[in-house]
Amino acid sequence: MNFGVVFILLGAALAAALPGIGSAKGTGLVGQAAAGVVAEDPAKFGKVLILEVLPGTQGLYGFLTAILLLSNTGIMGGTAPEYTWWQGLCYFAACLPIILVGLWSALAQAKAAAAGVSLVAKNPEQSGKAIIFAAMVETYAVLALLVSLLTIMNIGNLF
């Protein structure tokens, strides 16, 4: 049995699923806050929309990682060679940064963005600062994405 592929598929599935869950919960939370502000003042829709979008990026990063993994390992094209269990485990490990950081950073960013929505509600002129505060969390999701992508692209040299 090809256990290596099992680990690769598990990595791809979790990379797409967990950051996706974080982003779904995150955008949902900020969406509630944004709806509260827009209910009082529809003119603030544009400002709060940017904040709502921010926690959604981790889901995209996870999706990107999963696609790259499936493509690089040949699973997507149907040309996948035999992978040993430890080769599969290496690919799985490469996905871990975006799996873990993607999930937690989306949830943390949602809280920062929801706080930003409250800031916009009280003081619309400060929306730029609110976006910066929430965007700071993005740094760690981007770093995790880079580590996952670079590892997946270069891991073949190890075998």
Partner: peptide, 17 residues
């Protein structure tokens, strides 16, 4: 606490009144 997210955002808007 997160179930009050919508409520708190509306309240923050109303604090301007």
């Amino acid at each position: 606490d997160t179930e009050y997210t919508f409520a708190v955002a509306r309240i923050r808007s109303n604090e301007n009144r």
